[in-house]
């Protein structure tokens, strides 16, 4: 039998004081002030503990209020209409990589003329000549040094015929020749292995473009006929430009991003 129930016992026997309710209301009203003075007064560990407890209480209270007002809350209408509307006959169908038409052929041609491209990698590290070429010493005594071996990945066209080796100034090693690139379509977010058609521009210089050197940032032309892209005229696009995004000479493969 607990010993501290004498107040309850007294109330049971004789009833509450006549002004009990009034006093209780006032006490409750003062409680907040009291709590806040406590919160300000307590310092150290006690203060920390008190703050934590008060925080918990407040969270609990807020949650309860929210639960009660759930019914009256104004809910936002589901107006988030999904992007990419499709007709009824295409819904529920597995969609293959979609054909995106070239934005505007004329615009593209104009850009091409100006030689300006909005490219994913706008700035490239300049490659110095001694990094690009290795001097190959020739002659019987190896004292001539006018031959150069290219140390980067190159693209050599299919119908390329070597010059007589005696007069060949630039040697493109067969081990570094590449004719396929892994091209990522930025909108479809998927990658295809595509045939390289040619080198459009090497930012390091006109000479490298002509030699077919592929370094990071080089713009190459790839065969995209597999992707099923179409022009506004309804023709299949087969050549499109892509920019090399890796260092092919280090990786042994070419990764590129399609320019759309």
């Amino acid at each position: 039998m607990p010993q501290g129930d004498y107040v309850e016992l007294h109330q049971k026997r004789y009833g509450k004081r006549l002004d009990h309710e009034e006093r209780k209301r006032k006490k409750d009203a003062r409680e907040v002030k009291k709590k806040s003075t406590m919160a300000q007064k307590l310092i150290g560990l006690k203060g920390k503990m008190y703050a934590k407890q008060r925080y918990k209480e407040k969270v609990e209270m807020k949650r309860t209020i929210q639960q009660h007002s759930e019914r009256n809350n104004k809910h936002k209408v589901d107006d988030n209409v999904a992007e990419g509307a499709m007709p009824a006959y295409l819904l529920d169908r597995e969609q293959v990589a979609r054909a995106k038409v070239l934005s505007n052929t004329i615009k593209q041609k104009r850009k091409e003329k100006a030689g300006k491209w909005e490219v994913p990698i706008p700035k490239v590290r300049p490659v110095a000549e001694d990094e690009m070429f290795k001097v190959l010493r020739s002659g019987k005594r190896k004292h001539k040094s006018w031959k150069r071996v290219i140390t980067k990945a190159t693209f050599v066209g299919e119908n390329f015929t070597r010059k007589p080796p005696k007069y060949e100034r630039f040697i493109r090693p067969t081990g570094m020749r590449m004719n396929k690139a892994h091209v990522t379509h930025p909108e479809l977010k998927c990658t295809f292995q595509l045939q390289i058609i040619g080198i459009k521009k090497n930012p390091n210089g006109q000479m490298y473009t002509q030699l077919g050197v592929m370094t990071k940032g080089t713009i190459i032309e790839v065969n995209v006929s597999e992707l099923g892209l179409v022009t506004p005229g309804g023709k299949v696009v087969w050549g499109k430009y892509a920019q090399v995004t890796n260092n092919p000479e280090n990786d042994g493969c070419i990764n590129a991003v399609l320019l759309v």
Binding site: M86, P87, R98, A99, K100, V101, S103, P232, G233, G234
Partner: peptide
């Protein structure tokens, strides 16, 4: 007759 002109898939 061939009627090009649209810039994307013709749905309807």
């Amino acid at each position: 007759m061939d009627l090009p002109g649209h810039e994307d898939e013709v749905y309807s």
